[in-house]
Write a protein that binds this DNA or RNA. Structure first.
Lengths: 335, 335
DNA sequence: TTGTAAGCGTTATCAC
DNA sequence: GTGATAACGCTTACAA
């Protein structure tokens, strides 16, 4: 934060008042053309730049958006950020980024920090561990614009950007059934994670639709690569009785494929596998992963769009909106 | 940005002066314990939160760091961001993120925005297209703390965090040579990208060290998955005469492996392939990719560390530092 | 021990 | 047309 030029300096140098400078720089109609050009040229010359901090303080508007995200390194999340950044850049907003690292306390701290920074609004995808939503409710009640994306919370009334996870789960499972699978394992996320529950619901619905039995022992909480390894033995015990797997995300599906192959299972001949996400890994694993496409970049853009819409219409009469992205099944070789 | 409580409100409510409130809240020794507790309790009760904007304006310090990064979606960069965010969070700094999308004009705009926002310092990795560094030089000359990481620029004197790309290239190539390769193709980045040039230099050095001829036609500008596909035919023409490939990054290496396999080449028996980066894809492709490890998370942390060190010692007497991360070869199956 | 007032950089409301 | 001045929320000499 260096010793920058201020309008005060310009005023002094040019022998005019501060307010004249301020007005001239923003083309106020009252100022004569001659003084305008004089001031503007000089400002340009000495490379004047308005102090955004002072502006924000004065205008009660920071033109900054806060983002709380579980883990930046996941491809889905990083593409979401990318989409957010692209649009907000166009619209003259900046993004302050905080990662919760799936920790609810750090998430809470991030929310506080962002509010303290007087961001104009917040974009958030919940951490896996968050169970208490009171702070979010409070912030929203106080009129703080907030958009939840992907990992939302139903008990908090607000704008949302999600995909149809239930339909995604159903689509994936139905595809397996269509391919002849009848004993389908579901590698699921923790059920208090909404997207996890929905994907599982979709799985169950597809089973029901096709009059297949729902077996509790075939729904296994296992949603990371590490967990696949931890549960390896248990998985091996289950495998003989199953002919299809729907995994809650790509990395779990891929980790499974890897241990399946190690055991000599052929995919898709012996076991079919469908993932969820369609990240770059899906086309690298062999066989290439059949999976549900998740449009991170677009969801990021849409989240910002929704937020800005609310910021630009503070009249607040718009009712909360939920944007639902339809899932698409990317059929490849694993199923 | 809601109608929040200010110290003024507290002062009025409690019948004390603004300065007393200000002092009490920061435990100023002059204030009596009784008023302190009175004020603190009340502040807590009505949920007072200081306005960071006002603070920054007053103290000429925003506790905010600006980040300019080419593309968030690349695994290396997202892990860098993750490391940066983790450390700066601990140290009470926030990060404003801007992506240049490999576009030098957007990069220049980002720099300006961040300076306008009075960030305390900037972390930057250059876009591929940047050829003009004058703005960076100017900012640094004006005393703006800046740390370049990964994609640095040698003509700008400043703190740097890089890895030893030359050594990485040498290591990769030498490993191929040790394995018996003598006709090694190098899929290179554009040579005005410093990291690209260094990796190529390492390749050349290894060849020289082992008295192997350097053939210009075996150095091919090809550093993305897309480019591999574009150059597919040319690559197929080259392949019969080569027995090893060193690719400037993992995704290029993997894309190559995929088209090699399609043509029936066996890896590593027919052609050995080494990549650079060691992202998550490296263990998914088959055969698993032998590659140079690049510690994104650590480099991110180190960049922030270097920046904070400078911010905390504004005496500015510390000479510029360059942190060099040594490369490690991760040996897997592709070479 | 507490209060007054100036100032951080800007804009907006008055005057003249 | 242009210039004082107050205000945004806070800190900090300097007074009291």
């Amino acid at each position: 934060m260096k010793n920058k030029v201020t309008i005060k300096d310009i005023a002094k140098a040019l022998g005019v008042s501060i307010s004249t400078v301020s007005r001239a720089l923003k083309d106020h109609p009252d100022i004569s053309e001659s003084t305008k050009t004089l001031i503007k040229n000089f400002a340009q010359e000495i490379n004047y730049r308005p102090n955004v901090l002072a502006l924000s303080l004065r205008q009660q508007k920071s033109h900054t958006i806060g983002l709380i995200i579980p883990e930046i390194v996941h491809h889905f999340f990083s593409s979401v950020i990318s989409g957010m950044e692209d649009l907000s850049y166009r619209e003259g907003y900046n993004i302050i980024i905080c990662q919760s690292t799936e920790n609810q306390f750090r998430e809470a701290a991030a929310l506080q920090t962002l509010i303290d920074h007087r961001v104009d609004g917040i974009l958030i995808s919940l951490s896996k561990s968050t169970q208490n939503f009171s702070q979010f409710k409070k912030a929203i009640e106080e009129g703080f614009p907030m958009v939840f994306f992907d990992r939302i919370c139903e008990s908090v009334e607000t704008d949302r950007v999600i995909m149809d996870d239930t339909e995604g789960g159903r689509l994936a499972t139905e595809y397996l059934i269509d391919k002849g699978c009848s004993n389908i394992l579901h590698l699921a996320a923790s059920s208090h994670l909404l997207i996890g529950r929905y994907r599982r619901d979709g799985y169950i619905q597809a089973l029901k639709d096709h009059h297949l039995p729902i077996k509790e022992e075939l729904i296994l909480k296992c949603d990371t690569q590490e967990e696949v390894l931890t549960l390896q033995n248990h998985l091996y015990e289950l495998l003989p009785q199953i002919d299809g797997v729907f995994a809650v995300n790509d990395s779990t599906a891929i980790a499974l494929i890897q241990i399946l192959k190690k055991k000599g299972y052929r995919i898709p001949q012996d076991i079919r596998v469908v993932g969820f996400g369609d990240g770059p890994n899906a086309t690298i694993v062999e066989p290439a992963l059949t999976t549900i496409e998740q449009k991170g970049y677009d969801m990021g853009r849409e989240s910002v769009r929704l937020l800005l819409q609310r910021l630009n219409n503070p009249s607040a009469s718009i009712s909360y909106q939920t944007r639902v992205f339809p899932p698409t099944l990317k059929i490849r070789e694993s199923a």
